[in-house]
Simulated scan of single mutants.
Amino acid sequence: MNRVFVSILLFLTVACTGKSPQEKSAQKVETPLQNTSIEFTELSHGFGELKAGEIVLHTFEFENTGSHDFVIESIETDCGCVHTNHIQERVKPGEKGWIEVELDTSGLVGREYKTIEIHGNSKELKHLAIFATVKNELLDIKY
């Protein structure tokens, strides 16, 4: 009796969770992004000499030089003082995109070099860099 009950329960569980053929065909099939190539107009930017507490911005521009759409999946920075904003849409072949980088110099001093890593469907992992010399009246470092 127990085996019959378990068998019926198992059958109903499997039968009720499956989707009908109409539901399966109605689902949108996402095709994986194919790798493409992008080229930046510059890979680094120097802000020069800044005072601690300044917030500065720079926009890096790139072009999709490949034959497939480019999508930025994520951007990683090596410091909490660097924030990014980027184009959210797909960048079609031949079109241009942008990544805006903000550097907050609060609490920084001396020569600062920060990196930005772009994760997307480009053939190669892309790295950007920003640098500045930060003057901080509270700290004085001699080189």
Rank of each mutant, 00 (worst) to 15 (best):
L12N: 03
G107S: 04
G97F: 09
E54S: 13
A15H: 05
L138V: 06
A15L: 09
T13D: 05
H58G: 00
R111P: 03
G66T: 01
L43D: 11
H58N: 05
D78G: 05
V6S: 11
L43M: 10
L139Q: 14
K24C: 08
F47W: 12
S44A: 14
N121C: 03
G94T: 00
F131S: 11
A15S: 06
N35F: 13
R3A: 13
K19E: 13
L108C: 02
E100M: 07
H83I: 15
H83A: 15
E95S: 07
L12R: 01
L9C: 09
D78L: 01
G53T: 14
T17K: 12
E63N: 10
D69Y: 10
T13Y: 09
I38H: 03
E61G: 06
L50H: 10
T84S: 10
S106F: 08
E63P: 02
E76Q: 15
H58I: 02
I75M: 02
T41S: 08
S20H: 09
T59A: 12
M1V: 05
V134S: 05
N64A: 01
R90D: 12
Y113Q: 10
F40T: 06
D140S: 13
D104K: 04
I38L: 02
G80F: 15
G97V: 09
Q27I: 05
E42Q: 13
I72V: 10
N121K: 06
S106A: 12
F60A: 01
N121G: 00
P32G: 02
V29C: 03
K96H: 09
G66R: 07
K135C: 09
L57D: 15
L103I: 00
E23S: 02
I72Y: 03
C79Y: 08
G110A: 05
T59W: 04
S106M: 09
K19Q: 14
H45D: 01
Q22R: 10
T31F: 13
I130C: 00
L10V: 15
V134R: 09
L43Q: 11
R90M: 14
G94P: 02
T77G: 11
H119T: 10
T17P: 02
K24V: 14
P32Q: 03
G120C: 06
V101F: 08
T105M: 00
E39A: 13
G94F: 03
N35I: 13
E137S: 13
V91E: 04
N136Q: 00
T65W: 07
E112F: 07
K123F: 11
